[in-house]
């Protein structure tokens, strides 16, 4: 029998199960902790740090930290909110994110996080890196300008699709998502039906021919902010 574990998030008691991470247990209980590289269908990766919380007074990524009995988690304090904001702002200035023309706008988790966290303009200087667009594949394209190196595509291709089309190459500012071929995306085994194509939180990996098909007003985050569905579930659980 799986052992139940009780811990505290922002003063609220949450019941989880042994083996769950803080983020998993919180989401299941209807408590939204902002996150980006985490995806429920993939193994936790802990790369973006957006889900950082204070665990018993020390910062930790909630997506990789297992829950423990009596653990005290602080997720929505002023301090943590500010850390998160800084992290997301850094993601914006590190790449070339032009939401106003991006086809992912309205469906983009990075953009939605920025709105939720109240980011109006980044406080850091834009780096304007030179990044490549690979549109060689007939059905899919990569725009590395918008990549946040969350590794969702890497994990999905390797662990779900069993193809290992993507992996990281380079270090520091040079780090990028590379494709598993000598040339470009067209020469890989990628198919538009792959999980790796559907799982990008931003507009870095997209299917061709679907741009702007959903009108403004009907896109994922046009009506509700990111995390609202989780929180609604939490309200339902309480009532």
């Amino acid at each position: 029998m799986i052992k139940p574990i009780t811990f505290i998030v922002d003063g609220k008691e949450i019941r989880g199960r042994e083996g769950q991470t803080i983020l998993q247990a919180a989401l299941e209980a209807g408590v939204y902790i902002p996150h980006l590289c985490f995806h429920p269908d993939l193994k936790p990766f802990g790369s973006c740090r957006v889900c950082t919380v204070m665990v018993n007074g020390r910062p930790a990524a909630s997506c990789t930290t297992p829950i423990a009995e009596g653990m005290i988690v602080e997720s929505s304090s002023e301090r943590i909110r500010e850390y998160r904001k800084i992290l997301v702002e850094m993601l914006f200035v590190e790449g070339n994110h032009f939401c106003m023309v991006c086809e992912k706008s309205g469906n983009c988790e990075l953009q939605a996080l920025a709105y939720r966290l109240g980011i109006t303009a980044p406080r850091f200087p834009y780096l304007f890196p030179k990044r490549e667009v690979d549109a060689s594949h007939p059905e899919v394209f990569i725009d590395r300008n918008r990549c946040v190196l969350c590794g969702r595509c890497v994990r999905a291709s390797r662990d779900v699709d069993g193809k290992h089309v993507f992996d990281f190459a380079g270090r520091g500012p040079e780090k990028k998502v590379a494709v598993n071929s000598k040339g470009r995306l067209a020469e890989t085994k990628l198919s538009s039906a792959d999980k790796a194509v559907d799982i990008c939180p931003v507009g870095a990996i997209l299917k061709k021919g679907e741009a702007y098909m959903v009108p403004v007003g009907k896109r994922a985050f046009d009506r509700k902010p990111i995390g609202a569905e989780i929180e609604e579930k939490g309200t339902d659980l309480q009532s």
Partner: peptide, 14 residues
């Protein structure tokens, strides 16, 4: 230049 053509109608209106 260098951008996908399907972005252009949304981009140039700016």
């Amino acid at each position: 230049q260098g951008r996908p053509y399907w972005e252009v109608p949304v981009m140039v209106q700016r």
